[in-house]
Simulated scan of single mutants.
Amino acid sequence: MSLSAMMTTTGRRARSYGRSILNKVPAVTIYFWIIKVLCTTVGETAADFLNDDLGLGLTNTTAVMGALLIVTLIFQFRARAYVPALYWPAVVLISIVGTLLTDNLTDDLGVPLETTTIVFGVALAAAFAIWYAVERTLSIHTIHTWRREAFYWVAILLTFALGTAAGDLVAEQLGIGYLMSAAVFGGLIAIVAFARYGLKTTTIVTFWIAYILTRPLGASIGDYLSQSSDDGGLGLGTVATSGLFLLTILGLVVYLSLTRRDAEA
C-alpha cells in the first residue's frame, strides 16, 4: 500500500472514530436540573448518615466513598457515550465526596467556613481557567474526549465542595436557618434563569453559575428535611430523606434510560 493510501485510510478511521464518540453528559433539560438537585440533597444527607448515624467517622466515610467514586468514574470514562446508569451514580457519589471534603476541613481540621468557601471558589476559578486555556471552551455539549471529561469532573467536584461550604456558611454560620437558606439560593437561581432567558446572557456562564447554586440549594433542602426540629428542620432523619431522594433518582434514571429523553442529538 502506498504512503498516500495509508494516510487516507488512517484519516478515514480517525474521522469514523471521532463520529463514534458522543457527548458524555446529558442534555440540559428539566430532568437534568431535577436530578441534579436530588443528587445534591442526597450528597448532604448520605454523608451525614454514614458519618454520624453509622458511626464511620469522616475519615472512613471519605475513604469508602472516594473508592466507590473512583470505580464508578473508571466505568464512566470507559463508556463511549452518555449512559444515565453510569453518569448519575457518579454525580451522587461526587456530591457525597465533595461534601466530605468540606466537612473534613471544617470539622476535623477546624478551618473556618469563610476560608473553605474562598479556597474552593479560587480552586474552581483556577480549574475553569486551565480548562478554557487548554480546550478554548467550557461547554458541556462537547465532552467527547478523555481530557475534557477529566476537566469536567474536576469542576463538578469543586462545585460540590464550594456549594457545601457556602451553604453551611449561610444556613448555620450566619444563622438564617435551612428553609430561609433554601429560599435565598432558590431566589438566586431564579435571577440566573432570568438573566439567561430574559436578558439572553451567555449560556455557558449562566449554566455554571446555576450548577454551583443548586448545590447549596439541595443541601439546605436536605438539612431542612432531615435535621431535628430543635435544629430548625422537619426531623425526617437522614435515612428517610436519603432513601426517598435515592428512590426518586432511581426512578428518573430508569425512565431516562428507556426513553433517552435527555440524550444529546
Results as ranks from 00 to 15, higher is better:
E135M: 08
E135D: 12
E135R: 07
E135C: 06
E135F: 01
R136A: 12
T137F: 04
T137H: 02
S139C: 02
S139K: 00
I140R: 14
I140M: 11
I140F: 01
I140Q: 10
H141T: 07
H141R: 13
H141A: 08
T142G: 03
T142A: 11
T142K: 13
I143S: 00
I143T: 05
H144Q: 10
T145K: 06
T145Y: 00
T145C: 10
T145G: 12
T145H: 04
R147T: 15
E149T: 05
E149V: 05
E149Q: 10
A150Y: 05
F151M: 13
F151H: 11
F151K: 03
F151Q: 07
Y152M: 03
W153A: 04
W153Y: 01
V154F: 15
V154I: 15
A155N: 12
L157Y: 15
L157S: 15
L157M: 15
L158K: 11
T159V: 09
T159G: 11
T159A: 14
F160V: 08
A161E: 13
A161Q: 11
A161P: 13
A161H: 10
L162I: 03
L162A: 06
L162C: 06
L162K: 02
L162Y: 12
G163K: 02
G163A: 04
G163M: 00
G163F: 06
G163Q: 08
T164G: 10
T164N: 13
T164I: 06
T164C: 14
T164R: 12
T164W: 09
A166M: 09
G167Q: 04
G167I: 03
G167L: 00
D168E: 14
D168G: 13
D168H: 08
L169C: 06
L169W: 10
L169M: 08
V170Q: 00
V170T: 11
A171T: 05
E172F: 10
G175F: 05
G175W: 13
G175H: 05
G175M: 11
I176G: 03
G177R: 00
G177W: 08
Y178S: 03
L179A: 14
M180N: 05
M180V: 10
S181N: 09
S181M: 02
V184Y: 07
F185L: 00
G186H: 12
G186P: 11
G186M: 05
I189H: 09
I191L: 15
I191M: 13
I191V: 15
V192L: 15
V192K: 07
V192Y: 06
V192W: 11
A193Y: 06
A193G: 07
F194T: 06
A195N: 12
A195W: 10
R196F: 11
R196I: 12
